[in-house]
Amino acid sequence: MSIYDLSFCTPADIPSEILEYDTPLEQLSVGISGKLGILQLDLEKDKYNNKTSIKNQFYKVPLCIKRALYLEETCPEMAYVYIISPSGGILQGDRYRTDITLKKSAKSHITTQSATRIYKMNKNFGTQIINLDIDEYCYLEYIPDQIIPFKNSKYYQVSNIRVHDTATCIYSEILTPGRVASDESFEYDICYMKVKSVNHQNKTRFIDIAKLEPKKENIKAFGIMNHYDILGNIYILLPKSYVLETKNEINVLLNNLNLNNVVGGCTKLPDDNGLLVRLLGQYVFDIKNIIYLIIGIIRKKVLNISFSKMRKT
């Protein structure tokens, strides 16, 4: 029996608000039963050519990857990895789990090939676990596309980010109100997202837990999202010595954005463990652009390289 079973892919601490939807799926009828998606990826810097490469990989569709690409001319050793989900998103009962480790000064930019759609669900719910483990002096940008929770969807996502005190990790999230093209806006049942970060000694760096239940609480109320549609979160874990300067630079950037209907701010995480950037806007496009601008700041600060441009294959 494989260790890659249901319990391997299911988060340990599913909140009661999600468990309320825990009705069993009819396992016999194909297409209804949930799938297990697994991705394991170990990245290391190769001692011969100095490039970061994939040392080990394992995946189980609906999660997979293509080979690493080297796209940044100012940093040719950085591995660009695209995560692909052939089913186009998460269905009811789906349990995804991704484990990514970076060792030996690896540098990588990881993203998804398309948005994460959380499909309409009649029963049960979908979950995703993302475990990132970033060792000494490594550098990771984990910048997935936006999450689109469809009408009546139920989604729980847990991200565990373990970052060595000497390493850097930029982790972003973009949440949309739903399938805007079909006039859906905040019609999902629940979207629950937990992000926890620890250092190499497993000392907590920060915890952020968001729960959105648009049918129970007006998400567009003042103070929550108000008239904004898109939420962006960027968590930046980096060595303490960079924290203050980087914060000021990001705030200068955010205060001088010439964008309509976008607001954001950057603050220090507990114990100078890194930075939090919160963004609210009208378009995914705007939020993405800001994320790339911030990546540019961090690359300059930590790697001392400039950021050419973002490429999607």
Partner: peptide, 13 residues
């Protein structure tokens, strides 16, 4: 305590 949460992005900003 394992199911504590918060969601006030606009107030955070």
């Amino acid at each position: 305590y394992s199911s504590m949460w918060q969601f006030i992005p606009q107030l955070d900003i």
